[in-house]
Design a binder for these strands. Structure first.
Lengths: 112, 112
DNA sequence: GGTCCGATGTCAGCATTGTCGACATCGATG
DNA sequence: CATCGATGTCGACAATGCTGACATCGGACC
């Protein structure tokens, strides 16, 4: 397995969504967050595959929700980004910042 | 063929490098720019494949360099990002901006 | 109790994207 | 002519992304 320096497009967004959701980062919430904030729609299958791969790479870990499993079906899984996951997000963000730098005339002003 | 809303990780960086290089966006220069600014190394094979795919998608066009072909070998190709390419870059940047928003405490302050 | 529904998770298979390495072209240089 | 450097091409394979169908199980409804 190649040890990539940058997260893929989906990986990056999923990692960010998990960070944003904090204590509430379970799969379906991630899907809704991505859709809401980025207009990025992801099917459950695609998401779970990505989550598994990122777990294998050490970008995140998960725990099954213990408290209040009053919902039916499978127990819910809660995801957490590891320091390694945060690190790769930083690397990626810095690279993009540098590439974007100076291109505002073409890409439009940065919101905020 | 699925009509994706976002560029892939490599596509995005390549598109940005081309914009930065302006009149000088030929393959080897793109590789150097990506390495220099983003620390992203790409082999020629990988780059050409990506360029071909993006041309098929309408993100860019190219022209063979006419003036001063005093170099040996194949004629050099110059790449240009199309309005559609710029548009997808905007979409991507806006989505990331929103996902990053508020995460500075975790990801660190944004340089510039 | 039996049925159906909704929220979860799993999986096989295929499509797209990313990587590498070997090969080809051709002017310049020695 | 032999070699080198800058370019481009290609085939094969690895990694990533996507879809649809199936499985689980508590609640709501009758």
């Amino acid at each position: 397995m190649v040890d990539r320096l940058f997260p893929s497009e989906l990986e990056q967004m999923v990692l960010l969504a998990i960070l944003r959701l904090g204590q509430h980062a379970y799969a379906l919430a991630i899907i809704r967050e991505l859709d809401r904030l980025a207009g990025r729609s992801v099917s459950r299958g695609a998401l779970y595959k990505t989550l598994e791969r990122m777990e294998a790479k050490g970008y995140l870990v998960w725990s099954t929700e213990a408290a209040t499993p009053d919902r039916g079906g499978h127990p819910r899984r809660l995801f957490t980004v590891t320091p390694m996951g945060v690190e790769i997000l930083r690397t990626s963000r810095n690279a993009l910042m540098r590439l974007w730098d100076g291109l505002d005339p073409i890409l439009g002003e940065r919101p905020a």
